[in-house]
């Protein structure tokens, strides 16, 4: 196996790892906190709002935005590390 193939394989494996971790957070804040756990979380207050409600209508959206920019940052680093960044 050539070294380029090897590099591409490792690059891809690390990418998949990032994607899975970030999607787990994506799922947790929206479906977890916003839907399945909304009721128990509603016992906790966030300012004047119940926490489950707040995640469903506000918090999850903020986290979504952050997740994308974190992914961009991670991938730009990864591209450089494996020399796949665009010239």
């Amino acid at each position: 196996m050539s070294s380029l193939d090897n590099r591409a394989k490792q690059y891809w494996r690390e990418n998949i790892k990032y994607v899975l971790i970030l999607l787990a957070i994506w799922f947790l804040v929206s479906y977890g906190f916003g839907i399945f756990l909304a009721e128990p979380l509603n016992a906790i207050r966030f300012g004047g709002a119940k926490l489950g409600f707040w995640f469903a209508q506000q918090g999850s959206i903020y986290v979504f935005v952050v997740l994308i920019f974190v992914y961009v940052w991670l991938m730009n680093k990864l591209d450089k590390k494996y020399e796949f960044d665009e010239i």
């Binding site: 209508q57 959206i61 979504f64 994308i68 992914y71």
Partner: peptide, 16 residues
Amino acid sequence: AVFLMGWTGGYVLLAL
């Protein structure tokens, strides 16, 4: 919330 999360969360899927 189905609209709020549903019409924003898809962009995470798009980007990733």
